[in-house]
Design a protein around this nucleic acid. Sequence first.
DNA 1: ACGATCCTGGATATTACATGTCCAGGAAGA
DNA 2: TCTTCCTGGACATGTAATATCCAGGATCGT
Lengths: 157, 157
Amino acid sequence: MGEGVEWGLHCCLVLAWIGDDEALSTAKLAKWFELPPAYLNKRLQALVRAGVLTSTAGARGGFRLGRPPEKITLMDVVTAIEGPEETFRCSEIRQRGAGAEAPASEFRHACGVSVAMRRAELAWRRELAAQTLADLMAEAPPSAAARARRWHERVNG
Amino acid sequence: MGEGVEWGLHCCLVLAWIGDDEALSTAKLAKWFELPPAYLNKRLQALVRAGVLTSTAGARGGFRLGRPPEKITLMDVVTAIEGPEETFRCSEIRQRGAGAEAPASEFRHACGVSVAMRRAELAWRRELAAQTLADLMAEAPPSAAARARRWHERVNG
DNA sequence: ACGATCCTGGATATTACATGTCCAGGAAGA
DNA sequence: TCTTCCTGGACATGTAATATCCAGGATCGT
Ligand code: SF4
Ligand code: SF4
């Protein structure tokens, strides 16, 4: 799991705190977290493509949430950044070598290893889809949200 | 998730099918699945270190299961090969940059992003720990097990 | 109209890690 | 004693994540 997920979640959290009235530029967000601006921008673009964020070009432009926080799940952010592929990639080694001698009827039955791993991955995705940005905001200490808004007023006018 | 997990699971399955009476060498297993022998051996060594497999040196040596199949969970194999680290690594970016201005009291509270991701990961691990090698054997078509034993008699005497 | 800000997307470099190979040493059986 | 075979480290290779840069276009404030 790349660190981009952590970046994305924190950025979404900040954007949720400061609200939809104002946008935050890549440069501001990068400065907040001390991250490489150009690279962070790539991740933000991925979130835009997934509809999690919206972007506005031009002066006073930047990013804001694409929909209300209670409509954004952690699963949305993770798949936007990590891609839709499953973490367990099946290379079908059972059909190679000695396994190739097996009758074709055996391959119609889904591989047990594959379904077992998929079952675990589904449990993971289900748990991610069950938690929203709004949940994270609720659990966070209120002082963090207030500090985000104060910082925003200072740097964004 | 590296492909080593798939290799390890398939090898464990073959070892479970042929039973504890005989051992299988790295070379034989590699030939079965058409995998690079030296590299496969690295993964098998990891399984030995975790106690999932046992190894015997010398002629007619090789690997066999370290304990009965119903005592080997998928979680055991995955952690043996992928390592014990969580897939979501937290780099504590909330304490960097503007976040550093936060009072220390805020950091005593565990980060919400971190606990949310951990919760999902625990669901994944729980699901892996709930499935054993014996379960996989039961779900597999009986013809696969029979073919494994036949092949073993041909190559191992 | 004009300059400043700021997103978009492609090309490119850098780095980390997974993958893969090789070899010397030792253990066990034939 | 010869062969098989595991162990562990060193090393080479390949690939993906990470990071930087630039040209193009959009928007805003003046
Ligand atoms: S048995 Fe399952 S994990 Fe193994 S190669 Fe086939 S589909 Fe993949
Ligand atoms: S808030 Fe959570 S995910 Fe973010 S840096 Fe802190 S511990 Fe890591």
